[in-house]
Design a protein around this nucleic acid. Structure first.
Length: 601
DNA sequence: CGACTATATTTTTTT
DNA sequence: AATATAGTCG
């Protein structure tokens, strides 16, 4: 326990308890503090809580964080750790009637808005789209009557089964807590102490309702928010959190950084200062000096992948660290998954499928029948053939192949064996998935999921742009090699990560790639941050009115990615104007002249 | 043709 | 939430 841990412990166990917002920057040991405080609560008050049937609730942003904290608490029953979504769902689940009322209101409201748009639409195509949406909402509204209970399942739209999606679950809890003191009572009687990790990104409406709950029950309820406003990177968060809290809240802060080397702490302090006036600089606690470099390249340079490998090799010399040579030892951060796909060579397979949100989610989470078939049946089968491993091949066929069952009869077995042997010549990395799968389909070697089957036999005349059959058809034109690369990415073996996805993580060597020209989103613009691209009128308006804006938003994301690095960091910036970007990098004090390299061609 | 409007685009979150 | 692009109206 250190000072801040003791301070927080005394807030939580005081009479009355004091709620608090802990400012804990990157690498400051925030989770350590959380765990220390919780362990002391257990030691001193665990028995008391148990007798009252109460627990300390801890809310995290991701499943991964949930698992990490649970592990560090040794899965102790004094605590209940969950993601914000499952927390919300658990609380609202029993109130089917109220959820129905909420949905009725929401859906009617959506219907009115759509009706408005339909009336105003001048374009037939968009009118039809609105009408299509309208019919979906009306169907959902009608199905409400017969629903006896809801399920939380946003990936499958099961009409009539009463499904709720991510944002609905959060909104419903926020609304229930705001309007019904019963909901507040249920919460605080179960969980008199509630800690929220990554509170800077916690949904604004829910955070406000929790703060209101605390105000109304300040004698029996302690709300502890852990976070770092400089690391707010989701737009659903609450940027005004710090200034909106009641005066009687504690505001401890952790200023030390135990993660990053001295030079990196220096860099992130400068970025942080530019992102907000209220930024508190960190103090480096590591002895290591560390290395920071900025490489600037032209946006339309060819072979980005190759250039980036050259940069890794240069970094190995600059930082005297041979691990930089191997991409697997360097966490490479890109803004979007598509950029990782292009750099890793699975874009032909991934890009078409990513146009459909459900397939995309399945691809990124290894879920769904198609993805699981490809990863756990199809690929292992092909790899066993390529590796000439007949033992594994037989094991897979025995487990998954229908023809194996029928092969009890001698004649069947001989023809099956021949079909498999003939298959060998098709199994080449450069052959298309379509060719390989067609053979498997025709000879019934494995049972292929319907969506992939429909993709193989695609012959529709008209279809939507996210039609899953069409997208599978496109994706299957990719080579086996692409699927193999995707499989490595899906299993987390490739060293790529997205800028937002690595929140909370740390890596010895980080390559942060800034490439606006390749990005499809619209929220972040590194070239605006670097003063290369002019600010739009909207940007200027937002800045003048003190609203969150591209510059502050991008600066915070830049802060997050740079602060992941423990030893050394290279920022790879693509731009249309190398000279201006360099000037900004030097003038802002972020990089020294001799830390900047330019790759012209 | 200029003025205006509609649309698409990203990340993360669950059983 | 910001903006480029495609499409439509007068």
């Amino acid at each position: 326990m250190n000072n801040v841990d003791d301070e927080i412990y005394s807030y939580v166990t005081g009479n009355p308890p004091k709620s608090f917002l802990l400012f804990a920057g990157a690498g400051s040991g925030k989770t350590r503090t959380l765990v220390n405080v919780l362990e002391k609560i257990k030691k001193e008050h665990g028995g008391n809580l148990f007798r009252k049937g109460q627990k300390v609730k801890v809310i995290t942003f991701t499943n991964a964080a949930c698992e990490e904290i649970n592990h560090r608490l040794q899965y102790d029953y004094t605590f209940s750790v969950s993601t914000i979504h499952s927390f919300s769902w658990e609380l609202i689940k029993p109130f089917t009637k109220n959820i129905k009322e909420f949905l009725e209101k929401k859906l009617n409201n959506d219907i009115d808005n759509l009706q408005d748009k339909i009336n105003k639409a001048r374009n037939n195509n968009s009118r039809e789209n609105y009408q299509k949406d309208l019919r979906k909402i009306q169907a959902r509204l009608e199905s409400l009557e017969t629903i006896t209970s809801f399920i939380y399942s946003p990936t499958e739209v099961l009409i009539g089964k009463g499904t709720l999606n991510h944002s609905e679950v959060i909104s419903i809890l926020a609304k229930f807590m705001k309007e019904h003191s019963l909901m507040q009572d249920i919460l605080i009687s179960q969980y008199p102490i509630l800690f929220i990790d990554e509170s800077q990104d916690t949904q604004k409406e829910l955070l406000i309702s929790l703060i209101e709950t605390q105000k109304a029950n300040s004698k029996q309820f302690c709300l502890g928010l852990f976070g770092d406003l400089t690391q707010q990177i989701y737009s659903s968060g609450y940027p005004e959190l710090a200034i909106s809290l009641p005066q009687d809240w504690g505001r401890p802060y952790k200023q030390d950084n135990y993660r990053c080397s001295i030079r990196i702490v220096d860099l992130i302090n400068k970025i942080g200062k530019d992102s907000s006036e209220n930024f508190i600089p960190q103090i480096a606690r590591k002895d290591e000096k560390g290395t920071v470099r900025l490489f600037i390249l032209n946006s339309d340079i060819k072979d980005k992948r190759e250039k980036e490998q050259c940069i890794r090799e240069q970094m190995s010399l600059i930082s005297s660290d041979p691990h930089w040579n191997n991409i697997r030892n360097v966490k490479t951060l890109v803004l979007e998954h598509a950029m990782a796909a292009k750099r890793s060579g699975f874009e032909k397979f991934f890009l078409p499928l990513s146009k459909n949100n459900i397939i995309r989610d399945n691809l990124l989470q290894n879920t769904g029948a198609c993805v699981q078939f490809l990863l756990y049946q199809f690929l292992p089968l092909l790899e066993s053939i390529q590796e000439n491993n007949s033992f594994t091949l037989m094991r897979i066929l025995e487990k998954y192949s229908h023809r194996m069952d029928k092969s009890k009869i001698e004649d069947n077995f001989i023809s099956f064996k021949k079909d498999v042997e003939d298959f060998y010549s098709l199994v080449r990395d450069d052959n298309t998935l379509e060719n390989i799968l067609s053979y498997i389909y025709n000879k019934d070697i494995l049972e292929i999921p319907d969506d992939i089957k429909n993709g193989l036999n695609f012959d529709k005349q008209s279809y939507e742009i996210d039609d899953k059959d069409f997208l599978w058809n496109q994706a299957l034109k990719a080579s086996l090699d692409q699927l193999k690369k995707y499989s490595l990415y899906a299993k987390g073996i490739l060293s790529f990560g997205t800028h937002q996805g690595v929140k909370g993580l740390e890596f010895p060597r980080v390559m942060a790639i800034l490439d606006d020209s390749e990005a499809n989103g619209f929220l972040f613009k590194y070239n605006k941050l670097m003063r290369v691209e002019a600010l739009s009128d909207t940007d200027k308006k937002n800045i003048v009115s003190g609203k969150d804006n591209v510059l502050s938003r991008t600066a915070r994301l830049f802060y997050v990615i740079c602060s992941r690095a423990e030893k050394s960091l290279v920022v790879v910036a693509y731009t249309s104007d190398i000279a201006t970007l360099k000037e900004k990098a030097v003038n802002s004090g972020w990089f020294a002249e001799d830390e900047i390299e330019i790759i012209a061609e």
